[in-house]
Nucleic acid binder design. Structure first.
Length: 473
RNA sequence: GUCCCCAUCGUCUAGUCAGGCCUAGGACACGACCCUUUCAAGGUUGAGACACGGGUUCGAAUCCCGUUGGGGACGCCA
């Protein structure tokens, strides 16, 4: 049997981190089955039935977020709103079959019922006023909603692929609204009709939908359809242990991109947040597709840990292709230092990237560190760097300058040998010379190897920077 | 409040379904040391958890019950 999954966000904002993980799991599950013979498809459906809150910007942000994350979907995204007629038809059918009824309660009456229910410690809010009442009693001029005639007794059971068997007494569930007074379908109806029509076999979504699954199960039953397999994955919590949501600390994926995280980092991190495969931590996407399964999804919520994400990102930066990193860095540098980039910034970055990427955990940090190559002279000095350039430091640089000027081969190894020789001749350790050089060359006390830097910068630029310092303020 | 779910180091987790291989393993973060031209990376190492209480059993992190704690859901939102 072909596995069909979907990601169904409502376009009321960016694609947040929890949604991204839900999308990832659905995508992975479909890909896994596609790669293991049985077939798998992953669809995207935009749940835009709430016209007041849905925006095209949000839809675009969702596309952009998924695309950046590298999660591709089958065909055109489905607009739930565009299918409203089908949803309505399903409700009408239930009405005709006597499985649903019109309810004329006003919002005030409903509010009173809600209050009474809570006061009495009941979960069921709607009291079924119109369930068996004669439609002839209907007040004039009131547009009714259509409610499902849900079972009053017994229990509804879902065999959740993650949570196991979950049971609730039907007495807890009231008659849900299927069609609003204005004739538009509710989420509950739309989801069921759409998932059925789209042939969804596995509904993988956040644990916050677990109670919805009960109602949806009742709806599937009433409509005479088989319910899909449900898999409710635990929520992601913030540092405070509460559900991460758009209103509560969840950032959009683009915020992580802007902060300098790589998409493969997010994929790996999000995968591991709530899913495990033995002691494996670094898991490529191909490996994830091969391994992913619902059996290994944990049952408890997980906290989002930016430190671990950052560490993982460092790993993926080190692994990333230099040319790709150069482009990512150049983009930021051009935006952050307009008009101040050196002519051969790109070439230098490419040459120095191997040393640079070893030391950065985010693209932002990498860009920051890249300025030692990318920016024109004269360079800015940090206070600590300035301290390296006291009388002693400058004296060493003054001595080293002609030695470098006369150096034969201008490369990493040769320059180190030359400098070491110079240092030892003066009774210094290499580090004693290297630090002032670093300060002069980079304006910082922290950088890649100074000899690598000289190599990347070339003789002319290196000597130029030394001269800038030697010339004094 | 009612219903539902969850519970292993600070965090993410392995182990739980098929009880002994667990004096509980890995990763991040933290401490120390090594490497070293700085910083990273890397290596070695330290500290650090089965929420509690009862059962069942020769034996329980693993099974059962309860307690506590945490979370989620209770809309003519999705």
């Amino acid at each position: 049997m072909t596995v069909v999954t979907r990601f169904a966000p409502s376009p009321t904002g960016y694609l947040h981190i929890g949604g991204a993980r839900t999308a990832l799991y659905n995508w992975l599950f479909a890909k896994h089955h596609a790669c293991h013979g049985t077939g798998g498809k992953f669809f995207l459906r935009i749940e835009d039935t709430d016209r007041a809150r849905s925006t095209q910007e949000a839809v675009d942000a969702i596309y952009a977020g998924l695309t950046w994350l590298g999660l591709d979907w089958e065909g055109e995204p489905v607009s739930q709103f565009a299918r409203a007629d089908l949803h309505r038809a399903a409700a009408e059918r239930l009405l005709a079959e006597g499985k649903a009824y019109r309810c004329y309660c006003s919002t005030e009456e409903l509010a009173a019922m809600r209050e009474a229910a809570r006061k009495e410690g009941r979960q069921r809010m709607y009291d079924g006023t119109w369930r068996d009442r004669d439609p002839a009693d209907a007040p004039k001029g009131v547009d009714p909603v259509i409610r499902l005639k849900a079972p009053l007794e017994g229990e509804t059971v879902i065999e959740d692929r993650v949570q196991g068997r979950v049971t609730v007494a039907n007495a807890q569930l009231d008659d849900m609204v299927l069609l609003r007074a204005d004739g538009t379908p509710t989420y509950m109806l739309a989801v069921v009709v759409d998932d059925h029509d789209m042939g969804i076999t596995h509904v993988i979504r956040g644990d916050d939908h677990l109670t919805n699954a009960f109602r949806q199960t009742q709806l599937y039953l009433a409509l005479g359809w088989d319910a899909p397999q449900f898999a409710h994955i635990p929520l992601i919590h913030g540092q405070d242990g509460a559900k991460l949501s758009k209103r509560h600390g969840a950032l959009g994926v683009e915020a992580y991109r802007d902060a300098g995280f790589l998409p493969e980092t997010l994929r790996n991190y999000l995968l591991r947040l709530g899913w495990g495969h033995g002691d494996d931590e670094i898991i490529s996407t191909d490996q994830a597709i091969d391994w992913f399964g619902l059996e290994n999804v944990g049952k408890s919520a997980a906290r989002f840990d930016i430190a671990k994400l950052t560490n993982l990102n460092g790993h993926y930066i080190r692994e990333a292709d230099d040319a790709r990193l150069v482009e990512l860095v150049m983009e930021r540098l051009e935006a952050g230092h307009p008009g101040r980039l050196a002519k051969d910034a790109r070439d230098r970055l490419f040459k120095g990237m191997a040393g640079l990427k070893e030391r950065a955990k985010t693209i932002s940090e990498l860009s920051e560190n890249s300025t030692i190559y990318a920016l024109q002279r004269p360079i800015e000095m940090t206070e600590k760097a300035q301290q390296q350039l006291g009388a002693d430091g400058l004296a060493l640089l003054r001595g080293l300058r002609p030695v470098l000027d006369a150096a034969g081969t201008w490369n990493d190894e040769a320059l180190m040998a030359t400098t070491r020789e110079f240092a030892e001749a003066g009774g210094h350790k290499l580090g004693a010379v290297a630090q002032p050089v670093r300060a002069a060359l980079t304006g910082s006390t922290v950088s890649p190897s100074v000899f690598e830097i000289m190599d990347v910068l070339g003789r002319e630029e290196t000597l130029g920077r030394l001269d800038d310092v030697l010339a004094g303020p």
